[in-house]
């Protein structure tokens, strides 16, 4: 599993960076969006899930049940910490995305363009 996830991280990261180095603000926004996925996947890969042979859905979710052994907590459940970190990252990601897209709308209205080169021209004209 880990190797599949690592490949996903590599691919999504590469694509998002390719988009972010582009010339168009829309592509950059989508790159930022994908970057969030890649980062979250990278963190969850480190939670060393016990998906080894036949993973049962949500059998090892980090929720205390009868069979929980406090002396050896990681035997029955996965590491809860990466999940807590990602959960907040997702919500924050939404707010940041919305803010970024609003800026995009405003930029396109004020300048009539979303190309970075043309925006640079507009900025120097304003000076």
């Amino acid at each position: 599993m880990t190797i599949i996830l690592s490949i996903c991280v590599a691919v999504v990261f590469a694509v998002s960076l390719y988009l972010m180095t582009g010339r168009e603000l829309k592509s950059i926004a989508m790159g930022v969006f994908l970057l969030g996925h890649a980062a979250n996947l990278s963190i969850i890969a480190m939670s060393r899930t016990p998906v080894r042979h036949e993973p049962q859905l949500l059998k090892g979710a980090p929720i205390l049940t009868e069979g929980f052994d406090p002396a050896n907590p990681m035997s029955s459940i996965v590491d809860p910490l990466p999940q807590a970190l990602i959960l907040t990252a997702i919500v924050i990601g939404f707010a940041v995305m919305a803010f970024l897209l609003s800026l995009l709308v405003l930029t396109s209205r004020k300048t009539g363009t979303l190309s970075i080169e043309e925006l640079g021209v507009v900025a120097t004209q304003d000076d």
């Binding site: 880990t2 590599a10 691919v11 890969a45």
Partner: peptide, 12 residues
């Protein structure tokens, strides 16, 4: 991307 993917694999 490859660098980060490798980093993920190793640290996992």
């Amino acid at each position: 991307g490859v660098a980060i993917g490798w980093l993920t694999l190793v640290s996992a």
